[in-house]
């Protein structure tokens, strides 16, 4: 009986394993392989030349790569952190019974449904020199002169963070909401009888009970934040002076636009290693069983 169940278990993994093996394993191996070669579009006719770890040595000494990495990590940390807090707030709000609940739940998802192409144009318009935000701030006399939102590196970073938080908080709140909805009301009723405060209920019941959902949500948000691309390309193109360029933008440029396949592959592999490092921090959260 047990053994049969185990065999069924393996069988049930099969579709996922096959799909992943068919589509992802080869590209991954191929990319790792390419990263040890000098391969360039411009010299495609000459073929690839094995260079060992040269691409990696180059990457480690590449100050621009380091800059983009630092910004990518900073961006990821700040955006995911804020999205978690706001997302939790929204999830709690969406859970409450109130008039127009359905509408609120749907409205919260909207930023996420707006295609990035369109969102990019909207935010660029908002933050541009003669754009909406400067106009509103000047109209209500918060500022005298228009701010150079996309020209000053810190303001540009802030603008991008705002746009990204706007775009991705729905993801966070939706997953957290689904976690919240699996918690029985009984716990809260019991806690109320014991006279626990709202905050106490939140920290002692809600958080522990949705911890594993929360970690998975945060983990996948981190992964996608580390790959941020479209929104920044639309808003600043990496400017001012490359200060908002992320590792993916640099990798895409190197790989496609510059035609430097080998080095682009190496950058991608480094990115992969860093992501794995971060993910390992989250593996434990899946092992410990929830207290339910």
């Amino acid at each position: 009986m047990e053994r049969r169940m185990t065999r069924i278990g393996y069988l049930m993994l099969l579709p996922s394993v096959l799909l992943i093996a068919a589509l992802i394993v080869y590209p991954v191996v191929n990319t790792i392989y390419q990263s040890f070669f000098e391969i360039r579009t411009q010299t495609a006719a000459l073929g690839a030349r094995f260079t060992g770890l040269d691409n990696y040595v180059k990457a480690i000494n590449d100050t621009h790569f380091r800059d983009t990495l630092v910004w990518t990590l900073l961006f990821t940390g700040v955006s995911v952190g804020i999205e978690l807090v706001i997302g939790m707030g929204l999830a709690l709000l969406m859970k409450r019974k109130m008039p127009g609940q359905g509408l609120i739940r749907t409205a919260v998802l909207i930023p996420w449904a707006i295609p990035t192409v369109v969102a990019g144009i909207i935010w660029t318009q908002f933050f541009s020199q003669n754009g909406m935000i400067n106009y509103i701030l000047q109209t209500i006399h918060l500022i005298e002169e228009p701010l150079s939102w996309l020209g000053n590196q810190w303001l540009a970073k802030l603008s991008i963070l705002i746009a990204d938080i706007w775009k991705n908080t729905p993801y966070m709140s939706l997953l957290l909401l689904s976690g919240l909805l699996t918690i029985s009301k009984d716990y809260y009723e019991a806690a109320q009888i014991d006279g626990a405060t709202r905050w106490k209920q939140f920290t002692c019941i809600t958080v522990p009970l949705i911890r594993s959902t929360m970690s998975v949500t945060v983990l996948f948000r981190i992964i996608s934040a580390m790959r941020v691309y479209d929104l920044i390309v639309a808003m600043t193109g990496g400017g001012p002076a490359g200060k908002t360029e992320t590792v993916s933008m640099y990798a895409v440029n190197t790989y496609f636009t510059y035609g430097n396949t080998g080095y682009g592959a190496a950058l991608s592999v480094l990115m992969l290693l860093i992501s794995i490092g971060i993910s390992l921090l989250f593996v434990d959260s899946l092992k410990t069983k929830g207290s339910v």
Binding site: T124, S128, Q129, N130, S148, L150, P240
Partner: peptide, 9 residues
């Protein structure tokens, strides 16, 4: 803002 302008702006 010229240093932040794209074509449209």
């Amino acid at each position: 803002g010229t240093e932040t302008f794209g074509t449209t702006e």
